[in-house]
Design a protein around this nucleic acid. Structure first.
Lengths: 147, 147
DNA sequence: GTTCCTGCAAAAGATTTGCAGTGAC
DNA sequence: GTCACTGCAAATCTTTTGCAGGAAC
């Protein structure tokens, strides 16, 4: 993702939250800045660590509150990879989305997008006759470095 | 799933665990029996509730231990739907697997199988050039009753 | 008798909440 | 000055672990 995307996401967040009558605050700015720069999904604990390493310590309670706020407004997405903690990732303003591969060896997350998969899910939801609002696909395997 | 499938899964579990040098115990029998009869994924807390309702109270620690044992031997599968607790479901001895739709209204789980989706994931893993061991697909939407 | 299984209680982690103080506008 | 935001501490909830007694073989 380009640096333009990064700053545009931060701007987008500010716009949406301002319209919602929310102010700004130090913790929120720090977290938004971190998520904007981070390509991959982070857990609340990881966010706390990164911010502390950057010399900008932030309370974990605030981290959870900011993340909830972002998810509520569709600005971030919550995902779970089965390790007992939730991970968070910014969403693309255009609505484009992707899925993840969890490397069983190094634990890293690899994002990917696949039109064929999206089509298969569209056809599937039609076949099932149910209304599907969203979907998650999680692959478990080995990343390029480990595989 | 037929009652034959149910009993065959229980038999399968006994066979596998006996081969692994494990004995039997009351808690394990109760949990296997419950999972055999239950069509859908249950959390440890739900399993505890059901067993208590049946007048067969079982310690939660034992429930987690039995579930871990089943997952280790490939007899059950752990899945998460994002509500902060793990759910468990028996696996089919043949290796057949399915995925789930979570109804956002009533919270129920609907299982489905879709060859097209499986093919799309096979093609995808080939395109990505990574080794994919397993995959999970989770749809969020409305079930037939609610939709 | 030895080994595995179980229950209880305590511990460990992640997440949420109450509350008082701080900061933005 | 008001209302939102933050940090701390405590609470909640799920899951794991230590240990002692009990059951299976």
């Amino acid at each position: 993702m380009s640096s333009t995307d990064r700053s545009s996401w931060s701007e987008h967040v500010r716009g949406v939250l301002t319209s919602a009558g929310r102010g700004r605050g130090g913790a929120r700015e720090r977290i938004v800045e971190l998520l904007a720069a981070e390509p991959c999904a982070l857990s609340a604990v990881e966010i706390e660590e990164r911010l502390r390493e950057q010399g900008r310590p932030t309370s974990r309670a605030s981290i959870y509150r900011v993340l909830d706020l972002l998810v509520e407004h569709g600005l971030a997405e919550r995902l779970t990879v089965g390790d007992g903690q939730a991970r968070f990732e910014r969403t693309h303003p255009s609505g484009a989305h992707h899925h993840h591969l969890v490397c069983e060896q190094c634990g890293c997350l690899v994002a990917f997008h696949d039109p064929g998969l999206e089509r298969a899910i569209d056809r599937l939801s039609e076949r099932l006759g149910v209304r599907v609002q969203s979907h998650d696909v999680l692959l478990h395997g080995a990343c390029e470095q480990c595989g």
